[in-house]
Design a protein around this nucleic acid. Structure first.
Length: 294
DNA sequence: GGAATCATGTGAT
DNA sequence: ATCACATGATTCC
């Protein structure tokens, strides 16, 4: 069973599922954004990947729920600015009082989150057992990390980079004890990347391990609904430190639970995608993919 | 308009 | 102390 198949629950019936979708899609997005000036045609893109134009069209649409053309539109500056939603203040203000560990509806994937105490954070994960495993996802190989209190980390790796990806994550909690255990991380992966399983009856448990400042930033990110976006300075305002937008950027960048904590919905004030720890292409992919999940 | 420049908070070394 | 940042506003051409 492939994740690509699970995700496209709307019209999966007439397509052949394939695990390699993200590779294809990634390459198309990269080309499209790198060379958008020469507007490469579907034929040209397909030729480079050794696919027929119709194959490519189908693969892409199955993945995103959006044709390549519509996708491109969904990740332009223009569209990003719309996502930012001029002057409709409530976005972040509304759900301000969530508290640290109360359950709540945080973006469209229902999660409860709790934060590690400052002491636990300072211990750098000492005494903590973290189980991890790799799973296929719409955005490449996903590295899932869990503790007995819930999901603690989610990272992405392109083929061959799994090792580096793991080390990147493990560095964050150097004193923790890591155990590979694919079977216990699998349910999390299933759950996260399958929108039809997003429900509040059994919320996804998430545990945030980070400094006080980082946790405030991440909680703020959780309030951004799917299909919307905010700027780094919006977040700075939300946490009551309006001049700290740059620090916010740094904290967003260190978010260990990418996608679930929707750090890809933070944009520069101009609407430009300014950066992403796991690659700008992936940030575009996530934004476009979400645009197709309506 | 766009490049260069500065003020800026946080966390790692 | 110092430094690198997924920023943003200002100030020059």
């Amino acid at each position: 069973m492939t994740l690509a198949r699970q995700i496209d629950f709307s019209n999966a019936a007439d397509v052949t599922p394939s695990d390699g979708d993200y590779e294809t899609v990634r390459s198309v997005i990269e080309t499209l954004t790198l060379e958008y000036q020469d507007q490469p045609s579907l034929e040209q893109l397909a030729a480079r990947l050794d696919l027929s134009p119709t194959q490519l069209q189908k693969t892409f649409t199955r993945w995103a729920g959006l044709s390549p053309k519509a996708f491109l539109q969904a990740v332009t500056l223009d569209h990003a600015k719309r996502l930012l939603g001029r002057e409709e203040l409530p976005l972040l203000e509304t759900s301000l009082e969530l508290g640290l560990s109360g359950p709540g509806r945080l973006h469209d994937l229902f999660v409860t989150h709790e934060a590690m105490s400052p002491g636990e954070w300072k211990a750098k994960g000492a005494g903590l057992t973290i189980r991890y495993g790799y799973h296929a996802s719409p955005f490449g190989q996903a590295l899932v990390m869990i503790t007995d209190r819930g999901l603690a980390g989610l990272a992405f790796a392109d083929a061959g980079e799994e090792k580096a990806c793991f080390e990147d994550m493990a560095r964050r909690w150097p004193a923790a004890n890591f155990v590979e255990d694919r079977s216990s991380t699998e349910p999390y992966a299933d759950r996260i990347f399958n929108p039809s399983q997003w429900s509040c009856e059994q919320p996804l448990r998430v545990v945030m391990i980070g400094s006080d400042f980082q946790i405030r930033v991440w909680q703020s990110l959780m309030k951004i609904p799917m299909g919307r976006a905010v700027t780094y300075s919006d977040i700075a305002n939300d946490i009551g430190q309006p001049t700290a937008s740059r620090a916010v950027g740094a904290a967003v960048g260190r978010n260990p639970i990418s996608f679930v904590v929707p750090c890809h919905r933070a944009l520069g004030k101009s609407g430009a995608l300014t950066g992403y720890h796991w690659g700008l292409t992936r940030k575009r992919a996530m934004l476009g993919w979400e645009a197709g999940q309506v």
